[in-house]
Design a protein around this nucleic acid. Structure first.
Length: 246
DNA sequence: GCGACAG
DNA sequence: ATCTTGTCGC
């Protein structure tokens, strides 16, 4: 496990980071359904921080999509090079996550991120960003709704409700249709993965439809609220952080 | 101006 | 994210 360096030209300021998002956003592919749920492999990525030493450890864990058994895993260590700013999470996590993905001995298949994709202030969250940089199909599964409005889904597992972002009133030309409920965009879904338990917040990253993103998330939550991919990656990067003693 | 704010 | 005791339940 070797330490990572940022890609050349990686943004150093918030202004550069927002500009990078605005430019890369156009490369997101939204018209592909993505791999069918229950086929191939699914990979979870997550990171853990050491504030004392400004270290970040990333983990990538590949699961068989049917058995959810671990097929492969890898970790990477990096220096934290960006502060936590809501909306700019990717610039803190992605360089080390890329290194962990590179260290895998097999293709990742669908990548499940801890955070957002389209459900983002500039429609370019962590999952979208990772997808554009790798070309891989990605989705985001977040634990919190951020600032997006949503109705509480029904109590049974599998229930959903749209995550709504206020539409751009200036560009929407709402006058063209008088229908109600046309003044908001569905940027993701609140998805109940366990009966009566707080939902997770699913959004598309890259090259996956929202329906498929939700189906994958349900297939990954036979027992717990969070996807098995996220749980495995979370425990691995925490363990790797504990065992990192420079 | 003030509050809210993925991880 | 991370800091943390006990507790309830399978």
């Amino acid at each position: 496990m070797k330490t990572v360096r940022n890609p050349a030209g990686w943004p150093a300021t918030q202004e550069q980071a927002r500009a990078a998002q605005d430019e890369l956003r156009g490369r997101v592919v939204l018209d592909e359904p993505g791999p069918p749920p229950g086929t191939g492999t699914v990979t979870g990525v997550d990171v853990a921080y050491d504030d004392e030493r400004d270290l970040v450890v990333a983990a990538a864990v590949v699961l068989d999509a049917v058995s959810l058994q671990v097929v492969a895993e890898a970790t990477a260590v990096g220096q934290v090079s960006f502060p936590y700013v809501p909306g700019l999470l990717a610039f803190r996590e992605i360089p080390t996550v890329l290194a962990a993905l590179d260290a895998l001995p097999c293709p990742p298949g669908l990548v499940v991120c801890d955070g957002y994709g389209l459900a983002h202030p500039r429609r370019f969250g962590l999952a979208s960003h990772l997808g554009v940089l790798t070309g891989l199909p990605t989705i985001g599964v977040a634990k919190n709704p951020f600032t997006f409005a949503y109705q509480e889904p029904g109590a049974p597992r599998g229930s959903t409700s749209p995550l709504l972002a206020a539409a751009d009133v200036d560009a929407a030309h709402e006058d063209a249709h008088e229908d109600a409920d046309e003044d908001a965009d569905e940027v993701g879904r609140a998805l109940r993965t366990r009966d009566g338990v707080k939902p997770v917040f699913v959004s598309v990253g890259h090259r996956v439809s929202l329906d498929n993103a939700c189906a994958h998330t349900l297939a990954l939550t036979p027992e717990f609220r969070l996807p098995e991919t996220t749980r495995r990656a979370d425990s691995l990067c925490r363990r790797a952080l504990r065992e990192t003693t420079p």
